[in-house]
Write a protein that binds this DNA or RNA. Structure first.
Lengths: 207, 207
DNA sequence: TAGATTGTTAATCGATTAACAATC
DNA sequence: TAGATTGTTAATCGATTAACAATC
């Protein structure tokens, strides 16, 4: 078991990674925590603290090597694993995710689409054929999918999660607005759009 | 200026709200912090602390009145304002959001769609005609939109944010993976899908 | 009354910020 | 050398957890 890293730190790493890519496109080879912080509205101390958690990445008096730091963050985040996604529930949101280009640039690829609606099964979305959710095990196995993406209605989400776990996915990305129960060995990230929208409503209601 | 409420508390309120609705559907009229916590994997102490921030909602020895608590949380979150959304960028994600049913149940409604692509302008999505982004001011004014939803590519997001602010929206919900600058009076919530997905990758990479 | 459960205060834990020695 | 900037330790801040009096 590795040293415990705070979720707050982990959630900032993708922001650093993204910014380093932009910086790299500007042909800058070195960046200071100060400049990185300025671009992200994060204090330089916070950035140095986050990075120091994983080792010594920079050079005193100089700063951080852009491409080296980018690579190291990519490795910390495990992006080099090139995870394969299976999307369950090919409605509007599932379809949008199947077409989402930003995944590819992070090393993720969509390898399977599943839906239980017979009218959708057989369709192609972004070049991928929609399979029947009933064939979950074969589809996950044959496509070697690592991550199950849940974009079904809340009422069906838990049973889909159970099926995905049984089929052997290594992680679950859940968009259904419901608390899922999965084994501790299967990491689960919830992407609950109503939380952000409600928080926005709250702030707009304040004086 | 009201007492400062932590973002963590605000982000849990929508979870309480959603669960109270489910509980109400089960015809339960009273719920304890213990039961609510059990359903959400949140400690009862945390829930009582969160609620106590806004006043005394429960009855000692009894619990919380489900529909009363639900109403009060709805009011705290400002959901009674029935905010009106304008979605800018009618690609896959924007189109999916335009069709997203869960918004309506929270009191939000999509009143405008905008895109700068002439091939899309004039189309109808979920019964709403797509307007030209160039006509932002008139569209926001005539539809009385409160919230601007940004689903354009990152490179265009800041200029769209500027246009939305100039057109008078009261809040911005940003899906573009980039740090936006907006006036402090305009609340901004970022919905960055790559953060959650990267965090999932991180946890899947750990032993 | 006894049992249950809230609201609130105190204790703990963890994350952020500040400070600064090391060093390029 | 002087200036810049990291990595790390100490101080502060804020959030969560524990404890318990109040009371239904």
């Amino acid at each position: 078991m590795k040293k415990m890293i705070s979720q707050a730190t982990i959630d900032r790493l993708p922001l650093y990674f993204r910014t380093l890519r932009l910086v790299e496109d500007e042909d800058l080879t070195i960046i200071s925590s100060d400049e990185l912080g300025r671009r992200l509205d994060i204090t330089p101390e916070q950035i140095r603290k986050d990075l120091a958690t994983f080792g010594q990445f920079g050079r005193k008096g100089i700063g951080y090597d852009v491409s080296e730091l980018k690579e190291r963050i990519s490795n910390i985040l495990g992006l080099h694993n090139h995870w394969r996604l299976a999307i369950v529930g090919v409605g509007h949101l599932g379809g949008a995710l199947a077409n989402y280009v930003n995944f590819a640039s992070l090393g993720f690829s969509v390898v399977a689409l599943l839906d239980r609606d017979k009218r959708i099964v057989g369709n192609k979305v972004n070049g991928i054929e929609v399979c029947d959710t009933a064939d979950m095990n074969e589809v996950i196995a044959s496509t070697a999918a690592d991550i199950g993406v849940i974009t079904v209605p809340a009422a069906e989400a838990q049973s889909v999660a159970d099926m995905l776990v049984a089929a052997g996915v290594k992680g679950i990305w859940n968009f259904a607005p419901i608390k899922l129960s999965v084994p501790p060995a299967v990491p689960l990230v919830n992407e609950d759009l109503s939380v952000g929208l409600s928080a926005l409503s709250y702030h707009m209601s304040q004086e």
